[in-house]
């Protein structure tokens, strides 16, 4: 299980902490295992706090982000990861490409 925690200011996002994943590979796997309702729920909650989170994280230089703030960054990268489905395709079965697991990524 993901044992990450979020800064107190963003405690309300703790139900979505499983999305705090450091690599694209992990974020994609989680996306593929999620229902449309789960994606929509995470998207709505994360979008509502995006601006505040960016302002919060930018209090320190990106290159020197402290470990305690990294889960928040990874959560926002997951918001980006799911946004195509939520904003463009709107359904899990609409995208018609090669299975994403075959796009083997390295960071």
């Amino acid at each position: 299980m993901n044992s990450a925690v979020l800064p107190d200011e963003f405690n309300a996002l703790m139900p979505f902490i499983a999305w705090a994943l450091p690599t694209e590979r992990e974020r994609t796997i989680k996306r593929l295992a999620s229902s449309m309702d789960e994606l929509n729920g995470f998207y709505a909650a994360a979008m509502a706090r995006l601006e505040a989170i960016v302002a919060f994280l930018d209090r320190e230089p990106l290159e020197q982000m402290s470990d305690k703030n990294k889960p928040l960054m990874h959560l926002m990268l997951s918001l980006v990861e799911i946004s195509n489905i939520v904003e463009l395709y709107k359904r899990l079965d609409k995208f018609d490409g090669m299975h994403p697991s075959r796009f083997v990524s390295s960071e």
């Binding site: 980006v80 990861e81 946004s83 995208f95 490409g97 090669m98 994403p100 075959r102 796009f103």
Partner: peptide, 13 residues
């Protein structure tokens, strides 16, 4: 990156 990646997955298929 993700936006383009999805189009490339369409291309790869």
């Amino acid at each position: 990156l993700c936006r383009l990646r999805d189009t490339l997955q369409e291309d790869a298929k």
